[in-house]
Amino acid sequence: MSDADLSPVRSRNLGELAVVYAGDYLNKLSGERIERECRKQLESGCRALVINFKETELVNSIGVSILLGVIDAAGNVGAKLVFSDVNNHTVQLFEMLGLTRHVAFAADEAEALSSLRCATSRRA
């Protein structure tokens, strides 16, 4: 495992919202840390998650499985999940595999946060 694999997953907590940066982990086993970070945010009370794919070039079968784990975890606590900054190739892959049934997509992080804030305020 390289040093990069051991570096912490980047995330930021905004109260009920949290952003987790997928980086380039979603094609290897070390990507499980993304799932752990998402679960940690959900366990700490976060009810809307943005996963930012800006630095993610490739999502392979391991990455898909990890994201399915995140979808499952979010679904179990009724949290919303938005994928932002996803490249076209990956969007097509997610569509083909049926992941789009479970998550919303946003062009970028700001749009994702804005949509989640709107949804949260409507709910309030």
Partner: peptide
């Protein structure tokens, strides 16, 4: 580790929850 990785690959290949 092989089992864990293999399971990810199987589930991720056709998106099984």
């Amino acid at each position: 580790v092989t089992a864990r990785t293999s399971l990810h690959m199987v589930l991720g290949s056709v998106a099984i929850m």
